[in-house]
Simulated assay, not measured.
Amino acid sequence: MRRVEHVMGFPVSVRIDDAYADDETADPVFAWLHEVDARFSPFRADSEVSRLNRGELKPDELSRDLADVLGLCEEYRVATGGAFQVRLPGRGLDPCAMVKGWSVQRAADLLTAAGARRFCLNAGGDVVAAGGPWRVGVRHPEHADQLCTVLEISDGAVATSARYERGDHILDGRTGRPATELLSVTVVAASLTEADATATAAFAMGAEGIEWAAARKGCEVFAVDAERRVFRTAGLPVAS
């Protein structure tokens, strides 16, 4: 079963190879992601995040989900010395850097709970997969029609943070300026929550972020810096 929808500002595709799978198997995935978009988008005036930004909600009135997301944001802020930051001065709260990976991982968990054993969930290029092996291409940061490498994962997640789609959109929270020392960072981890947040945080940290990400337990890293130098950890699951 294959299905694609546009949600949260990017295409989300689901492929389920289990024989029983049909559209109803994927319905909860897309329902959940649309719910997340409605509740957590800072671009929707009626979202929980926007209401919090306007001071209409007190910290003890937050939903458990948003409280969990903000807790993760704080964990990464501390771990990066402030480089990963979702409360930049003059911009209000914008937890999108955490929400994407967290919500898509939850969507994958819904598939697993429904009995899916072999599937691939691709959200704007970030991937959660189960029952592999699955081959995941890492796009060249400067040439859209080329790959830097191809990874092979069985059960896990791959996320990339880069400048090629949205320009200098990732800011270093320590300075408030765009992070420009890296061209792309790809992280392989057990969950997309970890992979996506680590990739974004490492990109925000700049050159030092590569070593920081590589030192995180369970993370493998592929990165290209602004000088076009390539870095990869020894355990990176490169396809043969």
Rank of each mutant, 00 (worst) to 15 (best):
R177G: 07
V127W: 02
V138R: 04
V188F: 00
P11Q: 10
L121E: 06
F30K: 04
S103N: 03
G125W: 01
H169I: 05
G131R: 11
H34K: 14
P237K: 05
I170H: 07
R106K: 15
G81M: 06
L192P: 03
A159L: 11
T233A: 05
L72Y: 10
D68F: 07
P141T: 04
F10N: 04
E211S: 08
D225E: 06
P42L: 13
M98E: 11
T186H: 01
A113S: 13
E142V: 12
G124H: 08
Y20E: 13
R44Y: 14
A107Y: 07
I170C: 08
A157P: 08
G132Q: 14
D94M: 11
R228G: 00
H143C: 10
F43I: 13
T180I: 14
L57W: 13
D172A: 10
M205I: 03
E227A: 14
I153R: 07
G209I: 02
A123V: 10
E220M: 05
R117K: 15
L52W: 15
E24T: 13
W134T: 05
H169A: 09
R177T: 12
A144M: 05
H169E: 05
E5D: 11
E24N: 12
I16R: 06
A144D: 11
D109Q: 14
A97R: 07
M98P: 09
D172N: 15
A190D: 14
G137V: 00
F40I: 06
G125V: 00
V99Q: 00
G55Q: 03
G173E: 02
T160H: 03
A215V: 04
D23W: 10
R2F: 02
I153T: 13
A179R: 00
I153K: 08
T149E: 13
H169M: 04
A108E: 10
L110S: 11
G125E: 00
F43G: 02
P141Q: 05
R177Y: 11
L171G: 04
R166V: 03
A202Y: 01
R91F: 14
A45C: 03
M98A: 15
S47L: 10
V99S: 07
G235K: 09
R106P: 03
L33M: 09
D225N: 15
K58F: 05
F30T: 07
S50C: 13
V86C: 13
V188E: 01
E5N: 05
S191Y: 06
D172L: 03
V238L: 10
R3T: 04
L66D: 08
P11A: 07
D126C: 02
L66T: 03
V221G: 00
G9W: 08
R174C: 09
L52D: 09
D94W: 09
R3W: 10
Q146Y: 00
E35V: 03
G137K: 07
S13Q: 13
A234M: 07
D60M: 06
R216K: 14
R3A: 07
C120K: 12
T200D: 10
S41Q: 12
S47H: 12
L111E: 09
G82C: 08
L182R: 01
P141I: 05
V104Y: 06
E75R: 06
T200C: 14
F84P: 08
V4F: 00
A116C: 15
T112M: 05
Y164V: 00
P237D: 05
D37M: 04
D68M: 04
A189G: 07
